[in-house]
Computed example of a mutant assay.
Amino acid sequence: MKTLYLVRHAKSSWKFDVIDHERPLNERGLEDGPKMAAHIAAIMPKPDLLMSSDALRAKTTAVFFAKAFTIPDTEIKLNHKMYDFEGRDLVEVIKSVGDEVDTLMVFGHNNAMTNFVNSYGDLRVDNVATAAFTAITFEIHSWQDLIPGKTIYHKAPKEL
C-alpha cells in the first residue's frame, strides 16, 4: 500500500514584478500555509519523502509542512518537472519515486493538482484550493504501478 499527500501551494501574490516562477506568497498564503501544515501534521502520519516544484510559492509552502512534521527543510527534494500545470509531469515524477517510500508528499500547482486528485482519487473536487491537502491511498507496492486509489482525506484552509 502507498499513500500520497498532495498540497497545492498557498495563495501567491501578484503585486511584485517578478516572473511567475518567483512569485512569493501573499498575506493569506503566509497565514493559510502554516495553519494547514499544523492541522495536517496533527492528524496524518509523517511522510517518508517531501517533493516540491522549485517555484518559490511551492517551496515556501513545502517548508511550512516540513517544519510542522519536524523534517529539516533541507530534505525537501525540489524538482523542476513539478512546475507543471497540466499533470502529466506530476504523474511521471510520482511514478519515478523509489519503492522504499510508502508515504509521499508532493507540493505543486493547479490545474495539475485538481486533475490528479480527480483522475487518481475517488472524491470529485471541482477545484483544489490554494493550500488545500488531499491524501489518496493506492493498493500498489510500486509507484511505477500507479492506478486510481481511494481518497482518504481532503481539506481546504477555509474548512479549518
Results as ranks from 00 to 15, higher is better:
Leu4Arg: 12
Tyr5Trp: 02
Val7Asn: 09
Arg8Pro: 06
His9Glu: 12
Ser12Met: 14
Ser12Asp: 14
Lys15Arg: 14
Ile19Gly: 11
Asp20Met: 12
His21Tyr: 15
Arg23Ala: 12
Leu25Cys: 11
Glu27Pro: 11
Asp32Tyr: 14
Pro34Gly: 02
Met36Trp: 02
Ala41Cys: 09
Ala42Pro: 04
Asp48His: 12
Leu50Met: 09
Ser52Arg: 04
Ala55Gly: 06
Ala55Pro: 12
Ala55Met: 07
Leu56Val: 09
Arg57Phe: 01
Ala58His: 03
Thr60Ala: 11
Thr61Cys: 10
Phe64Asp: 14
Ala66Asn: 03
Lys67Trp: 03
Ile71Glu: 09
Asp73Glu: 12
His80Met: 04
Lys81Asp: 02
Met82Val: 05
Glu86Gly: 12
Arg88Leu: 15
Arg88Lys: 15
Val93Ile: 12
Gly98Glu: 14
Gly98Ala: 11
Glu100Asn: 15
Glu100Lys: 14
Asp102Tyr: 01
Leu104Ser: 03
Leu104Gly: 03
Gly108Arg: 03
His109Phe: 06
Asn110Asp: 04
Met113Ile: 01
Thr114Arg: 04
Asn115Trp: 07
Phe116Asp: 05
Val117Met: 10
Val117Gly: 08
Ser119Leu: 11
Gly121Thr: 00
Gly121Tyr: 01
Arg124Phe: 09
Arg124Gly: 01
Val128Gly: 11
Ala129Leu: 09
Ala135His: 05
Thr137Phe: 00
Ile140Val: 10
Ile140Ser: 10
Trp143Arg: 08
Gln144Ser: 12
Asp145Gly: 01
Leu146Gly: 07
Ile147Val: 15
Pro148Met: 03
Gly149Cys: 00
Gly149His: 07
Ile152Ala: 05
Ile152Asp: 05
Glu159Val: 10
Glu159Trp: 13
Glu159Lys: 15
Leu160Ala: 09
